[in-house]
Amino acid sequence: MARLGMVIDTRKCVGCMDCVVACKTENSVPEGFNRDWITQKLTGSFPTLSLEIRSERCNHCDNPPCVSCCPTGASHVHDYGAVVLVDDKECIGCKACLASCPYDARFIHPGGYADKCTFCIHRVEKGLDPACVSVCPTRCMHFGDLDDPQSEVSRLLTSRRNHSLLPEAGTHPRIFYLT
């Protein structure tokens, strides 16, 4: 059983937001809402500075509180790739999952249900990369099976220094940032 994840090279990322725009169009994310976004962390003082640019989204955690807190089962772990999804037909919009996510990765879609990054499961199941990954002009985003030691993502993680976001929150995120 695959465990899909992302590995993003912050050394290459330029923060251009193409990944955000592509998500908008691919998934018709309504105006004013973001499934993914860019975070820029600037450290130091002029002119000795360092900048980490990160393309962020739902981390499709191995231990997802958003799923366990859901009273209807609308939030669930998809059997393909262990992708965390929301079934909008089952969602009552109680917002527990929004409050339960340490990354604030979810929002309430104008349709009244919880929404977030789907890892573009509709593309992935067709053998395509997620829209954000396939559009990235710097090719700094990599997507694949973290359980397969031969996969590009696994090899990158073993060969390069990397970190995930808020590991201390204990959700076991599946997006990693190469530094």
Partner: peptide
């Protein structure tokens, strides 16, 4: 095979 963000948002 890859547009820039403005191109992607061109629609």
């Amino acid at each position: 095979g890859r547009l820039c963000p403005r191109g992607t948002g061109g629609v």
